[in-house]
Each structure stands twice: as C-alpha cells, then as structure tokens.
Design a protein around this nucleic acid. Structure first.
Lengths: 364, 364
DNA sequence: CCTCCTTGTGGAATCGATTACACGGAGGAT
DNA sequence: ATCCTCCGTGTAATCGATTCCACAAGGAGG
C-alpha cells in the first residue's frame, strides 16, 4: 500500500482538502473541523503516508535529533552510555546520532562537522582532546552542547560526569585493609580530562591516607585501546605488590604482564589490581576485578535532560554524580564474613556471581 | 567568524555572484570560470559557510546516510560490527545512523520507521524477529536493504553473514580430541535466524562425527541478554561433561553454574565450554574461553559495499564469510607439546593468557 | 562580416513540508 | 436587520539548497 513517494499533496488530493489542512491535522492544530480531520486521517491511512522528516526539518529549523560524539565505541562504558542516552532521548521524542571518535581528534572533528551540517538540535560530547577550533567555534556560535564524562577546561559548557573521589578513597581504604602499601596509577591519554584526572585521583589519596600511610602513588601512561595497549607497563614500573587502577581497556593491557615470562606477577597474590569503570566481564575474569562503577544510566539521562533544557531555552547546570566501589577479588581475598549476595553490576541487571564485599554504597 | 546562519545566499552576495554559481562551485561543476571560483571560495572561507545538509537532501532526494539497526548494542559483536560499518561507510562518503533494537521487535520497528522518515539512502538490518509488516512493506516499496548476521527467511534481500559450520566441525573435532562425548547447545531467541541456526549447526555435527561418535547434541534455549540470562541452564540439562556452545552474552549466563553451589561444575574440568563470537575479554576469563570468531571487519565492509551497490543501482549478491575456531582452554588443556608452560599442572583457577592453539585458519 | 558553437552566468522552478494571511460564512450581540 | 467575531479553510511565501533553461559574450569557421 505504501509507496514511499507519497507526499502531503497526494494526501490532500485524496482527502479533498488543501495541504494546509493536512498539515494542520498532522500537527494536531486545533482549528480543523472533525469532518476534515477524519477524511485526512483516512487518506493518510489509505496511502500509507509518512511525513518527510527532511522537509519538515528544513522548514521548522529543528531536527529533533541529538548528536553524541564518544571517544571509543568499543569501550563498554561508552556503549552503555550511548544506550542510556538514546533511551532518554527517545522518551523525549528525540533521536540520537552516534559518532565514534576512536580517540582520534580528527575523527572527532569529522563527526562534529557532519553532525553540525545536518543541523542536529544539540551535541553531547565526550572530548578526545583539548578542544579543536571547530568545537570551540561551535560553542561560540551558540550550538547547544553538553559534555559527558570528559570535558574541555575553560569552555563554558555544562558537564555531566561522575566523581570518583569518594570511591577512590574507599578503594584506598580497601587496599590498605588488605595490606597493600605501594600504589601505582596507569592513566589514559594526558590530553583528556579523564586521562589527567588521576592527578586529582592521586590527590584524593592523601585524604584517605590519614589512616593509611601510602606514599604518593606512582603513575604511568598507557594508551587506552585494549589490544593496542601493547607495551606491558610492568617494564616501566619496577615495584611489585602495588595495586593499579585504570579504565577497563587500559586494564586489559595492564593485565597482560601477569603472564609475561619476564614478570610473572600473579593477581591478586603478587599484585593487586582495580579498574575505573565496571564492565560485565569483570565478573568472569580471573580473578574477578574490583572496580569503580559509574552510574552510567543516570549519567546518560542527566546529560540528555541538560542538553534538551539548553535546546528549549532553559539554562542547565553541570551535574556530578558519585561513582562507587565494587569490591571483587583482584586486590586480594576479603577475609570478613560477608552475608550478602553479589550485587553483580551497578546496572541492576544482576548476574549474582561472586560475593564481593561492599565497602560503601554511594547511591542508596 | 562562523555564524551557523550563513546560507548560500549570503555567500553569493559576498562573492558578487548568483546562488547558482556558488552551488556550482560547491559541487565542482566544470563550467565556472576560475575567477568566479576563486571569489566564491574566498567568500565561503570568510563567512565560514557550510552547506545545509538538510536542504541539500530535500532537493537531491538523497541523504548519503545509511541506517544500521542492530539487535543489541551491549553485545561486543554488534559493537564491532557497527564500528566497521561506520568506517567502511565513511570511506565511501556516507554517514551511519545506528538504531539499537535491544532485541525488542517494537523497538526495531521504531528505529526502522524513524530511519525511513529521515529518508536514509539504505538500511542495514540484523533482524530481531521474523519480520514485521513495516519491514516487509519497506522491502516491497523498494528501500535498499541488506541483512547482516541474521536475516528473514523468504525475503528477497541480500544477506551478509558468516558461516560457522566449518568452524563448528573444527570445534567438534577439538572437543572429541579432548575426550568430550556429550554435547549441548544453548541457543538464543528462536525467532532469529541465528537463534534457530543451531539446528544447522547441530546438523553440521554429524558431518564431523564420521570420526567422532558424538550423539546428536542436546539443545536448550536461553535469553541472550547477559545478566538477564538468569536461570542456570544446568538445571534443565542433566548430563555433565558436555561442552556448550553459544554466543557470549548467553555464555556469560551459562557460566554461572560453575560457581553455583547447586551445581559446582568446574570449567574445563567437569564441563567444557565454547562460545560463538569471540570477544576481547575471553582472554581474561577463567579459563580463557575457546570461541568461534567471526570476521567482523570483513562482514561490516561487505555489508556496506553490498548496500551501496544496491543504492547506486547495481545488484548485490549475498556474501558468506567463514568463521574460524580460536582454541583457548575452556574445553580442556591442549596436550600438544606447548613450549612455555608446565603441562598437566592443575592450578584450579587458571590465570592468564596463552598463545591460543589455532586449529585452522579460515582466512589466509 | 555573418553565422554557429562553446562557455559562463543568472533567473526561476523545485523538493515537501509549515504557517502567515486573507477570506467566506455562521452565529451572537446590538 | 446590521455588524462584529470567530472558525475553518485555502493561497502563497518560505526554508536552503540544486538544476533546467535562456541568454550574452567571444572565438572559430565559412
């Protein structure tokens, strides 16, 4: 029944009214007689008519579409974020176009440009770098924009992110309780705020170490793509028995030396390990990996709401949500007798695998 | 410099030519004098002009955009597929809009409808169900479409997928060689072709069993969302010492009984396990999981090329690429003289990553 | 010197919607 | 009865591009 070439004119002809009336029915404008309305609806039905979103966008100057530029689709954290963003946007009648920057600034620019060319209503970005001229121009030109997870310092754009400091404090306490005394941090690309944030994470450490005399942690840089994270960081960090903390892809690189004939450190026996961002598979690794989990769903929702507020003229504020520590076994076996069941992951979709000790829950 | 409200008219005014000439320059039409061209280019530069893709699409009736509807973004297989699709499309000057159906037919329809409304040039689908009227209508209406991974039987649309039969034969041989004699298959939703394909995978077994006297494998159904795959399939399948094969999310559900107090089957000691689709984290699980890997990158590229062939008037054919077996340790230790390690040692919990034994490579 | 063709250019139609504006008729108030 | 509101409707302008067509200028060929 539905040829895709049906336009509003055809519907008007079929219903015996003008295109204006058809349009009014389509947009549920009040001043249409019930009779006309019925005939239009019937014609639409009969012809299988669907309004052309392109034409509509041209006229109304809005696409009801959001752009989301993330730095790495292969990273489960961003995948989950994308999912929740799309969900939240859909609930509000918006679509989402995802651009994957693959941690490459020029690809990020490509996507931003493409998205802008398509006149998306607003942009959600997790910047790969310190801000290209293009992005800066876009902000200056008044494109509604919100940063997620990462941000560009000095740019006046709301940021929706999670704060891991409390969770890091919990982690440090946890580590200390298990007897670990030397810490190292493997960080991502220095250009990103999350890559350089370990500085602040590090600074969180002393706060926690009122009770735990850990020295300032050592820190190393790593690339973040899992299979590309080639060089075993162990080579560059000569002290054993220190826990590490980083994001999952980085961690997957970091884990490699465990089997490296040159190193042969065993987790958690010789060295502890913890990750930033929790992902489903951490439950199944050997050992299950202790991680700091971000509230991905809430982050996505908050970002969408902030952006749409901005689009519709309101003035959104930045949002910071607490991350929380999920203890598993990669920093050592917990000794305390624990009643509860494994909460699995923070998404609520539990697999109920292990029984990790929960030091503290940030969201009640 | 760049106010986003710059239109072709402004450029024309600035350059002192007509909009027609500007358009010709933009589309590198031959008959423009070098002088005019230069002035237009300068004006474009000065104004920071970017053509409005929406207007252009309306006029030319093409968006240079592909839709990709996948059944689950959280599944790394689809994530990788999406990435390669976007990459291939970008290389050919197309953008991709991803729709995540979350295995829900009505969501799938929502995305297909939205994509169609935006007049995308073509659609790549990995169907969640047997085909809604909407999708069937779209095909009938002549929307360029290509199925990826899964397909809808009886619909005349090219399919790009991988054939796991050879790899399954390799797997069966591998299992048999390790002494396994009873097989079970955990399949996904029966409505999908990949969910019901185990029938054909099962049928592949006897072929392989000329040399290996395995009985027809038992098969069970599971939902495919990893944490949602709640019920431990072990309860329903009473025979131990049988390897299982399924996709990673399903597998992650299936692994649970390992720790389930009621079952306490150990992998690979009591039961072997193998998965369809290989994912990065399988290297780090306990034990590393033997899997059948699909050539995701090639699949994505092939799909894009097929679709664009179709869009540009050529007639694409279906493509089937071989999957291949990646042996790790979840079906048992391989006994072959493996260089680096002590053979026969049973540490209970295996750590780490091996050089996987590659039984056979399908792509040379 | 007068065609004829080529080349560059601008005017205007077009894509499919939305919406300002004008207009005719019904109904209420005076 | 006359006038003034509404109400429902249609005509036409508009969004920002592309492209057909007409036309002018200039060079080649007769």
């Amino acid at each position: 029944m539905a040829a895709s070439s049906v336009s509003i004119k055809d519907v008007a002809a079929e219903a015996g009214v003008s295109v204006a009336t058809v349009s009014r029915v389509l947009n549920s404008h009040p001043s249409v007689s019930p009779a006309s309305r019925a005939r239009v609806v019937a014609a639409v039905e009969a012809l299988g008519y669907r309004p052309n979103a392109v034409a509509r966008s041209l006229r109304t100057d809005q696409t009801r579409t959001l752009g989301l530029v993330i730095s790495d689709v292969l990273n489960p954290y961003f995948t989950e974020l994308a999912r929740s963003v799309e969900e939240a946007a859909r609930a509000l009648g918006y679509s989402v176009i995802i651009g994957n920057a693959d941690e490459r600034p020029e690809l990020q620019d490509h996507h931003v440009r493409t998205l802008l060319d398509r006149r998306i209503d607003g942009l959600l970005v997790s910047p790969t770098d310190g801000g290209s001229p293009l992005m800066l121009d876009a902000v200056r030109a008044g494109t509604p924009m919100v940063f997620v997870d990462r941000w560009i310092p000095g740019v006046d754009v709301p940021v929706v992110r999670s704060d891991g400091r409390a969770a890091v404090r919990d982690l440090v306490a946890h580590l200390h309780g298990l007897g670990h005394r030397r810490l190292a941090i493997i960080a991502g690309p220095a250009a990103t705020t999350t890559g350089s944030e370990p500085a602040s994470r590090r600074s969180a450490t002393p706060c926690a170490s009122t009770a735990s005399p850990c020295p300032t942690p050592i820190s190393a840089r790593a690339t973040s793509r899992p299979p590309a994270g080639a060089a075993p960081p162990s080579a560059s960090s000569p002290c054993p028995s220190r826990p590490r903390s980083s994001s999952p892809p980085t961690t997957s690189g970091a884990r490699r030396p465990r089997r490296d004939p040159r190193a042969r450190l065993r987790v958690p026996h010789d060295i502890g390990l913890a990750a930033f961002d929790d992902i489903p598979w951490f439950v199944h690794t050997d050992p299950p990996v202790t991680a700091i989990a971000q509230p991905t769903g809430d982050l996505g929702r908050a970002a969408v709401h902030a952006l749409i507020d901005r689009i519709e003229g309101r003035t959104p504020r930045s949002v910071t949500l607490p991350a929380r520590l999920v203890v598993r076994r990669s920093c050592g076996e917990s000794t305390g007798g624990n009643s509860g069941r494994d909460p699995g992951r923070h998404t609520g979709r539990n697999t109920g695998e292990e029984t990790p000790v929960r030091i503290r829950r940030s969201n009640p």
